[in-house]
């Protein structure tokens, strides 16, 4: 599972063995594994011939590259910046917390969902808003968000 050789090889073949491929590699690993384990980071460092500290320093700089703990299959990021905050972000968070029985910052036991805060998602006129992986959901209400989460629970997100 944590073997990242394939991902690294693919990127290097595509663009060459150079520092500029570091972020694309890290992004691909996060997409597959939902976080960057220290083993993955070490392997990337070795393959690109960069110091491990440098790779970790870069990875940990970016909020979408998780280095601490494995996140769930679906990462829910709720915008907490001012306009979404004014439009009822709190109620949305509460609805998700109750729906998944976790608190903000946590991952469900079955490793399916993680709930995180994020900064402005660029949909202020349609807040509150959240991302689930790369999908955007706007103009949320507690009811709407419960429907969305339930659809994901049953793997029926295509019906949304």
């Amino acid at each position: 599972m944590s073997d990242v050789t394939e991902i690294i090889k693919k990127q290097i073949n595509q663009s060459g063995k150079k520092r500029e491929v570091l972020l694309p590699i890290l992004q691909s690993i996060v997409e597959r594994d939902h976080y960057l384990s220290s083993e993955s980071l070490l392997q990337v460092a070795k393959s690109l011939d960069i110091s491990a500290a440098d790779v970790y320093g870069t990875a940990s700089f970016y909020s979408f590259l998780e280095t601490n703990k494995k996140l769930g299959k679906y990462v829910i990021r709720v915008c907490k910046t001012i306009v979404c905050d004014m439009q009822g972000k709190r109620e949305i968070i509460e609805a998700i917390e109750n729906c998944l029985d976790i608190r903000i910052g946590e991952t469900t036991r079955n490793n399916k969902f993680s709930l995180l805060y994020t900064n402005c998602l660029g949909w202020c006129h349609k807040g509150p808003v959240m991302l689930i992986n790369n999908e955007v959901y706007t103009e949320l209400t507690p009811d709407k968000v419960r429907r969305i989460i339930n659809a994901y629970k049953q793997n029926k997100q295509e019906e949304l």
Partner: peptide, 18 residues
């Protein structure tokens, strides 16, 4: 990868350089 400061042009370039 989620960093507001990367909108600053030189930070953006650093980010592209990995």
């Amino acid at each position: 990868s989620g960093a507001y400061v990367c909108g600053e042009e030189t930070a953006l370039i650093e980010s592209m350089e990995g």
